[in-house]
Amino acid sequence: MESLLDFSPLVEEFGTILTGFWSTIRLTLMSGILALIAGTILVAMRVSPTPVLRAAGTIYVNTLRNTPLTLVLLLCALGLSDTLQLHLSTDSPTNYYWWATLGLSAYTAAFVCEALRAGINTVPPGQAEAARAIGLTFPQSLRMVVLPQAFRSVIAPLGSIFIALTKNTTIVIVAGYIEASSVMKQMFDDYGGTLPIFLGFAIGYMVLTLPTGFLFGRLAKRMAVIR
């Protein structure tokens, strides 16, 4: 019973835990940025007047959104990196970091795309018409008029996607990259599955995700487009 409430492993392994969370932060930030870029490109494809681009965007989103993240990451780490020997770095941890990042961003991009597409639907059609009427081309009107307004209307849902992304980094364990959850698993193996370790890590993730939600909520209010 005493060992169940023993907080000392958290203290002893504090450095390792911090390193684990630092890896989680790096994965989340880099994947988040890449997912945002890829998601924006995907939504541009999905609303473009070119049928081929629209179809490609739709297929991508439906494939990635409906595949378990575990499979996506295994495909990256085992399939592409190990079997096909596509290495993104000669340093093994760096290689797995990039494959994990790519897998996470490829998966998250599908959700970013769909959130943005919902955002585009909140922009009145007259905005795009006015943009075309002053002579902006389709890509210009998307970039300068439609997407900026779409983004602002989906900041809060994007926040949820980034919180999900933060927690999804725990699945990177299958891709061979060490982050917070793999540190936790190691500690469970070493010290037994005690409540303090569990609590410590749960709080650790909340320290990352609660401010994310708060920040995105604030941003959503501040950036809202008043009509």
Partner: peptide, 12 residues
């Protein structure tokens, strides 16, 4: 040039 019934000024 085009002027619309609902103005359609860029809201942002």
């Amino acid at each position: 040039g085009m002027v619309f019934q609902s103005f359609n000024l860029f809201a942002h």
